[in-house]
Design a binder for these strands. Sequence first.
DNA 1: GCCAACGTTGGC
DNA 2: GCCAACGTTGGC
Length: 152
Amino acid sequence: MNYWLMKSEPDSFSIDDLISRPAQTEPWDGVRNYQARNMMRDDMKVGDRVFFYHSNCAEAGIVGIMDVVKEGYPDCSAFDVNDHHFDAKSDPNTPRWMRVDVKYVRKLSRTITLKELKTKAELTDFTLVRNGNRLSIMPVNQVQWDFILSLE
DNA sequence: GCCAACGTTGGC
DNA sequence: GCCAACGTTGGC
């Protein structure tokens, strides 16, 4: 089993939005970055665990945990001209973008903020705290995962 | 709202 | 294949 972190701006989709979805499950669409796409297409498996991270907000940080419940499949929001994430270069016959489905597991008892994570020597190599990193999906290793949860 | 970091695009 | 211009991300 692998561990991941996925970012979302709570103004557009928060963990409370996920909780209110049917079956508390949501297709994670709109990702338009190749590295992140490749991880959803090739590496994320059913049963993998995911940190839900709130970005670009007052208190950026990890707020909860999700499960991967459906592996990479075409992100059809790229085909919809009315969708904010429409991409004319994604052909339905050879889809350029992929998504996975994620399901709510639980909220953390508190937000573990980016600010706090940056102070931890144990997380020096964690992608999230590396300066200027903009990946919206990233792997988390077992040691990092366990350490972060121990902060809760 | 600012702006640094960085990914993508496209001219050459 | 280089690289300048441009757009986006995301912390602050």
